[in-house]
Design a protein around this nucleic acid. Sequence first.
RNA 1: GCCGCGGUGGCGGAAUUGGUAGACGCGUUGGACUUAAAAUCCAAUGAUAGCGAUAUCGUGGGAGUUCGAUUCUCCCCCGCGGCACCA
Length: 812
Amino acid sequence: MGNYKYNPKEIEPKWQQCWEKHQSFKAEDNSLKEKKFILVEFPYPSGAGLHVGHVRSYTALDVYSRLLRLQGFNVLYPMGWDAFGLPTENYAIKHKIKPQQATKDNIEKFKKQLKSLGLSYDWSREINTTSPSYYKWTQWIFLQLYKKGLAYKHKMPINWCPSCKTGLANEEVIDGKCERCGAQTEKKEKEQWMLKITEYADRLIEDLETVDFLEKIKMQQINWIGRSEGAEITFNIEDKEVKVFTTRPDTIFGATYLVLAPEHELVSEIVSKEQKPAVEDYLDLARKKSDLERTQLQKDKTGVFTGAYAVNPATKEKIPVWVADYVLASYGFGAIMSVPAHDDRDFDFAKKYNLAIKEVVKDLKDSQKQDDDLDSTFTGEGEVINSDFLTGLTTSQAKAKIITWLEENNLGKKTVNYKLRDWIFSRQHYWGEPIPIVYCKKCGEVPVPEENLPITLPEVENYEPTDTGESPLAKIASFVNTVCPKCQGEAKRETDTMPNWAGSSWYWLRYTDPQNDRSLASKEKMNYWLPVDLYNGGMEHTTLHLLYSRFWNKFLYDIGIVPSLEPYKKRISHGMILAEDGRKMSKSFGNVINPDDMVEKYGADSLRLFEMFVGPFSETIPWSEQGLSGCRKFLDKVFNYFYDFRETAFSESDLSEELLTLLQKTVKKVGEDIKAFKFNTAVSALMILFNELKQGDNWYFYSLKDMKKIAIILYPLAPHLASEVWSFMEKDNKLEKVAWPQYDDKLIAQEKINLIVQVNGKLRATLTVEGDIEESQAKQLALKEEAVKRQLEGKEIKKVIFVPGRLINFVV
RNA sequence: GCCGCGGUGGCGGAAUUGGUAGACGCGUUGGACUUAAAAUCCAAUGAUAGCGAUAUCGUGGGAGUUCGAUUCUCCCCCGCGGCACCA
């Protein structure tokens, strides 16, 4: 033992080449086997190379895929590159090379790293979002969206990142900061391409019921879409109408004033002469505030009276109209009816500016509360009071009745609002898919005919982003100037490009048929492979890529391209790997672990095994090099075991029943745990097996048939080592083609058990007995135990609880 | 503030139709081998008391249900993630 026979540097490349040569992991398009499409989010090939976090999720799905193949499934486990985007563009600018070249170099590096880990991808299906043969279809999908009116151009204030020099989608702004670089975003008025994701808002919520996603993923998406049911109500201000949205139309009798957002178009029209200077000052101030300032100062609400009055359609009373920036222009109608008695924000505002507060809902649970107690709000459901024909109803009854009343009197209607905004789809950068639209002086906006796709990115020297918000493509005359597809006259191309999320919004489809040049993928192949059976990716993509791609899939389903309503059947998420110091791995902390170094030092199988063993797959976990070294020690032991077995010429030794049963249990557990993504306990089951097989410096060996079983159950986790030791025992069949072993349930059931003996629920002894022992017999044996006798001395047994196969408990 | 998840040794974690808490790994301590070290192997390792058998305590805190609670119920504390002036 301990002679360093295990040399991963030698055996790992050997088996990797063998797999590549035999195309061992090629997924069959026409197979009688049941298919499984296993997908992990494809990486952005950055200059930094692979992260140990990539290794974690890729290995987990690799382990899973390898198990499924041995269990007789036709598995598609593909890999590709999501390569458009800013980091590459910035890197290329800095190093004065073309993004095309940088991407090629980075992909090469990533691919080499992935191969060194022995991941069982079907490399024949590799895709790259920046290759024209791929983005041709990204552009094609855009044209289909355009045809259906789901892609439209719109001028509006958008989030602008001054550091990245581009507009951003709402999903890309976190706490007022750019998701990528952390810079404070600004508002910029720009004409933008938009995708109507809001059209799919309801279906994106409802169809979550049909898929198996982690609950927190569903909750986050539902939250983000933010559906609320309520009513729109029209208020009259003199001869003008203003619409408000409310989720509490039942409180309309308590609406004591209206508030318009500073951007509301009616503000300038209704403002009175006296109030005009004050209102204008306020609008100026609001304009200067960033979104962040507006939301961070939420405790201190500000506003100003317009001098105008509206009529509450329910009470017919005149109520003042205010302007305040706690009302957002972008939600609902940018105007609200304010019910200070039953809304915290309205309450704060009314208190500050001494506005009327009128209670219209009684809290049935709190009878103590006086009707005239106006120190706090009640925002729950209760009984309606002070509300004419609504009085006495419950909140939900009142909602229904007032909506009917509003509709009958043409004052409003039931309606639904969403927090979700349409997807801002234009970016002012070079390294993205050109948007296939041209502008003709005569014909206006004209989509590029499908047969002219792809519109390829021109390869140029200078592609730096501008500060003006104009795309760098605008400076490239050969690209911009074109002819109108309709009238053949002079025309200019759209120069904005698509966001980096475009290519990933349909990429899984392409894996089913990656070389197709007539359609994004053939019907037949999509019908066979889709939907994706298992999809793993990061939680950070829940309201970005995951939502966008569900939207595109639904659209493609609607126009008859893809066969399934949802793209992914099941979605799981891996936890992050932190540095050993418990902080995030980052260059600035100098605590980044490079997987290449770990493969070099410990071998790929050790790294794989460790990342599976380190903790539950979905949990955040700190790195531990000592833990990795422990896994290497385990594999040394495993290798030596099989090596010694070979040396001893397949001798058989006497094996106890326990060891025979243990093997059965281990086969069962490893298979079940991998299927349940409990990789850590699968590894520990293997460790337990080997601990038991060892007696000092000697080993217990199983029969050749059982030894092979051990190699097979090691294979998903440590495929190189398993293949090597398999070759000691079997020359004809390849390990990656054998069947996963059956286990013997009967043997497991026959096993002797430890029967627990308790007195008053406290453990006093354990008995090793047959699993099917009877109560009377167990009682007899238990009462012979010294410790039990001592506890029972001088006491009366009141009750005996016997749980077959588990315990016997004496109550005294 | 709202929603979701979690809190178990020195550390990562195991165990929940309620039934041996701490599997497995790391670390630590002692021992074997060695001139020595590394590696390897053996043993111990939740806390307290005891030479020991053993006893008591112990899964964030408090209460409850139960013969028996890490697991179920109620209240509270802490941590993480998401949303957040969305009417």
